[in-house]
Design a protein around this nucleic acid. Sequence first.
DNA 1: CTGATACTGAGACTCAGTATCAAAAAGAAA
DNA 2: TTTCTTTTTGATACTGAGTCTCAGTATCAG
Lengths: 144, 144
Amino acid sequence: MTEEKKIFRDYVKSRGLKHTAQRDEILTYLLKSGRHMSPEEVFHTLRERDPKLGRATVFRTLKLLEECRLASRVTDANGHQTYEGSYGKPHHDHMICVRCGRTVEFSSPRIESLQARIARRKGFQVQWHRHEIFGRCSRCENKI
Amino acid sequence: MTEEKKIFRDYVKSRGLKHTAQRDEILTYLLKSGRHMSPEEVFHTLRERDPKLGRATVFRTLKLLEECRLASRVTDANGHQTYEGSYGKPHHDHMICVRCGRTVEFSSPRIESLQARIARRKGFQVQWHRHEIFGRCSRCENKI
DNA sequence: CTGATACTGAGACTCAGTATCAAAAAGAAA
DNA sequence: TTTCTTTTTGATACTGAGTCTCAGTATCAG
Ligand SMILES: [Zn+2]
Ligand SMILES: [Zn+2]
Ligand SMILES: [Zn+2]
Ligand SMILES: [Zn+2]
């Protein structure tokens, strides 16, 4: 069992929740894919294997994975939610190609600290942030 | 006629579009309010005066205002779209209170230039960005 | 004025996400 | 293993934002 699965089981237990086959499937799929995926994409893929899987379960589970820091949420170019496995990954933000949808991750300690300073100065207690840059990736630069 | 209205008329004309009473009402309301407003809020308020106003017209017009830089779009804490009049306002980003919804504007030339540099380094052509910080504003710091 | 064209609004539709709730599964305890 | 409580599931209906369509209407250049 991977580290992530163990963390998930522990988290679930510690909150008095239950571990289920569906939750396991969803986590497994998210980890394996390594990409950003919409709940809808997860739902459709896994439903092929398990035709009884419910849409709501997928949404609920992804939210749960977010709570225990195994997944993180990114808003795509159309304003829709997307999840990526985030265990062991340090914080990062995204550049998102408006043509092909590809995301490029970036992280900048300097931006992060400027951000924190600005918030502090305005008396704002930061809970989370979203820093997304939209445009064209290098591959799509000259395409229609 | 305000500067903004003139710009709008010119833009509309230059694109071979037409100026209409509805578009004028919507722009007027956005300018007057000075806040961030959801399309739905604009729709409901203006519909009281003009019960025949259509929801689609509001969405279409706000999009048009965005195109000609008279309005800009901000995603709120729930992922919904919001517009603010932006003529003559330099670029800025937002800190959004998750409790009361209040937004505090900030701008940081240093963050902007770091951002641009990162994008350049990754061969990314920036079209726009979204930098939103969520948390509690100073007034809501100690409330439930 | 007139005609070409863009615009409007009613309403149907789409799509992401949520609420409900009875039936099923988990897991603790015996 | 069996029982019992609690959580989870999934079918389904629903919500709410936003889009599409299209027939009727308004705009504006000529
Ligand atoms: Zn960041
Ligand atoms: Zn691309
Ligand atoms: Zn900015
Ligand atoms: Zn507040």
